[in-house]
Protein backbone atom coordinates (compact mmCIF):
# COMPACT_ATOMS: atom_id res chain seq x y z
CA UNK A 1 0.00 0.00 0.00
CA UNK A 2 2.84 2.37 0.91
CA UNK A 3 4.41 1.87 -2.52
CA UNK A 4 1.16 2.74 -4.25
CA UNK A 5 0.66 5.83 -2.10
CA UNK A 6 4.20 7.08 -2.75
CA UNK A 7 3.64 6.52 -6.48
CA UNK A 8 0.47 8.62 -6.25
CA UNK A 9 2.44 11.41 -4.63
CA UNK A 10 5.12 11.16 -7.32
CA UNK A 11 2.38 11.54 -9.90
CA UNK A 12 0.90 14.49 -8.02
CA UNK A 13 4.31 16.16 -7.71
CA UNK A 14 4.82 15.79 -11.46
CA UNK A 15 1.60 17.70 -12.05
CA UNK A 16 0.11 14.59 -13.65
CA UNK A 17 2.87 14.32 -16.26
CA UNK A 18 3.69 10.86 -14.91
CA UNK A 19 0.94 8.33 -14.33
CA UNK A 20 0.81 6.09 -11.27
CA UNK A 21 0.91 3.02 -13.52
CA UNK A 22 4.06 4.21 -15.29
CA UNK A 23 5.74 5.04 -12.00
CA UNK A 24 4.92 1.63 -10.50
CA UNK A 25 6.10 -0.17 -13.63
CA UNK A 26 9.31 1.79 -14.09
CA UNK A 27 12.63 0.09 -13.52
CA UNK A 28 14.64 3.29 -13.77
CA UNK A 29 15.27 6.30 -11.55
CA UNK A 30 12.65 8.98 -11.14
CA UNK A 31 14.73 11.62 -12.98
CA UNK A 32 15.16 9.13 -15.84
CA UNK A 33 11.39 8.69 -15.86
CA UNK A 34 11.06 12.42 -16.43
CA UNK A 35 10.64 13.80 -12.91
CA UNK A 36 12.17 17.29 -13.00
CA UNK A 37 14.12 18.93 -10.18
CA UNK A 38 11.22 21.12 -9.14
CA UNK A 39 8.80 18.19 -9.16
CA UNK A 40 11.26 16.19 -7.07
CA UNK A 41 11.38 18.99 -4.49
CA UNK A 42 7.59 19.12 -4.47
CA UNK A 43 7.58 15.37 -3.91
CA UNK A 44 9.93 15.61 -0.91
CA UNK A 45 7.62 18.21 0.66
CA UNK A 46 4.57 16.02 0.00
CA UNK A 47 6.26 12.96 1.51
CA UNK A 48 7.36 14.81 4.64
CA UNK A 49 3.88 16.23 5.16
CA UNK A 50 2.03 12.99 4.53
CA UNK A 51 4.33 10.68 6.49
CA UNK A 52 5.58 13.17 9.05
CA UNK A 53 9.17 12.24 8.34
CA UNK A 54 12.46 13.85 7.40
CA UNK A 55 13.71 12.99 3.96
CA UNK A 56 17.48 13.33 4.06
CA UNK A 57 18.66 14.23 0.58
CA UNK A 58 22.09 12.86 1.41
CA UNK A 59 20.57 9.55 2.41
CA UNK A 60 21.15 7.88 -0.96
CA UNK A 61 18.81 5.76 -3.06
CA UNK A 62 16.19 8.50 -2.99
CA UNK A 63 16.09 8.72 -6.74
CA UNK A 64 13.93 5.62 -7.16
CA UNK A 65 10.43 4.77 -6.04
CA UNK A 66 11.60 1.75 -4.07
CA UNK A 67 14.42 3.74 -2.46
CA UNK A 68 11.94 6.34 -1.25
CA UNK A 69 9.51 3.69 0.02
CA UNK A 70 12.31 1.98 1.93
CA UNK A 71 13.48 5.29 3.39
CA UNK A 72 9.99 6.20 4.59
CA UNK A 73 9.29 2.72 5.94
CA UNK A 74 12.56 2.93 7.88
CA UNK A 75 11.55 6.24 9.42
CA UNK A 76 8.16 4.93 10.49
CA UNK A 77 9.57 2.00 12.47
Amino acid sequence: MLRERVAELVSKASGGDLTVADILAANCSLPALGLTSIAYLRLIDLLETEFDCDVDLDGGHLDTLDGLVEHIAGQRK
Binding site: C28, S29, P31, S37, D63, T64
Partner: peptide
Protein backbone atom coordinates in the same frame (compact mmCIF):
# COMPACT_ATOMS: atom_id res chain seq x y z
CA UNK B 1 24.73 11.11 -18.19
CA UNK B 2 21.61 12.09 -16.27
CA UNK B 3 19.84 8.87 -17.26
CA UNK B 4 22.88 6.72 -16.50
CA UNK B 5 23.49 8.14 -13.05
CA UNK B 6 19.90 8.79 -11.97
CA UNK B 7 20.32 12.56 -11.77
CA UNK B 8 18.84 15.56 -13.58
CA UNK B 9 20.38 17.41 -16.50
CA UNK B 10 20.37 20.49 -14.29
CA UNK B 11 22.63 18.66 -11.84
Amino acid sequence: LAARHGVTTSS
